Simulated assay, not measured.
Amino acid sequence: FIFTSSIVLVILNFLIHSPYQNNTPIILVFTVYNLLGMLISYQFSKDIETEKKAFLHYESVSKYDYLTSVFNRYSFDKDLTALFKQEKLVTIFLLDINNFKHFNDTHGHDIGDLILKKVSSSLLNASFPQHKVYRIGGDEFVLVIPSALSNKAIIETKAKIKQQISQLTIQLDNQFVIRISTSIGSSSSKPSQTIDELYRQADIELYIDKKSKSTSS
Rank of each mutant, 00 (worst) to 15 (best):
N174A: 05
I97M: 02
N23L: 03
S75Y: 00
V90D: 04
K52E: 09
I204V: 14
D77T: 06
L80Q: 00
A202G: 15
V142I: 15
I136C: 05
L206I: 09
K158C: 12
K158W: 01
I111Q: 02
I115F: 02
F14E: 15
S122C: 15
L15P: 01
K158D: 09
S120E: 02
D110C: 05
T91A: 03
A126Y: 04
A202M: 11
G108H: 01
S212N: 14
S212F: 07
N13F: 11
D113M: 02
I165E: 07
K53H: 13
Q163E: 14
K63R: 10
N99L: 10
G137Y: 01
L83Q: 05
I145C: 07
F141G: 10
K117V: 10
T106K: 08
T157W: 07
I208P: 01
D139E: 15
R200F: 14
V142G: 00
K152D: 11
I27F: 03
G108V: 04
A159C: 10
N151W: 05
F30I: 04
V144L: 10
H17N: 14
N22L: 05
V133P: 05
D47L: 07
S214V: 12
I184E: 06
L143N: 02
G112L: 01
K160M: 12
V119A: 06
L116R: 02
L89E: 11
Q193M: 15
Q130C: 10
I92Y: 01
V61W: 03
M38P: 02
Q130P: 03
Q86K: 14
I2P: 01
L206A: 11
T169Q: 11
T50D: 13
N174E: 08
I48Y: 08
H107D: 06
K210A: 02
P19R: 01
T157D: 08
T31N: 04
I155H: 09
I170K: 05
V8S: 04
Q171W: 06
S6N: 09
G138N: 07
I136V: 14
T91Q: 00
F176W: 05
I154Q: 12
I26F: 11
K78D: 11
F30V: 04
E87S: 14
S69E: 06
L28M: 14
I180F: 03
P19A: 04
L80G: 03
E49R: 05
T215N: 12
F141M: 07
L35P: 00
K211C: 03
G112Y: 02
T68V: 00
K53E: 15
L94M: 15
G108Y: 03
L83K: 00
H57C: 04
L35E: 12
T81P: 00
T157H: 09
S217P: 02
A54Y: 10
Q86G: 08
L114K: 10
L198A: 12
P25Q: 10
I154V: 15
L80T: 07
H131M: 08
I155R: 09
S216V: 13
K211P: 00
V177H: 05
S186Q: 09
V10T: 12
Y20W: 08
L198T: 09
I27S: 04
D203A: 04
N151P: 12
D47S: 06
K78I: 03
V61K: 07
T24Y: 07
E197G: 08
T68Q: 02
E140N: 05
S150K: 05
S60P: 00
S41W: 00
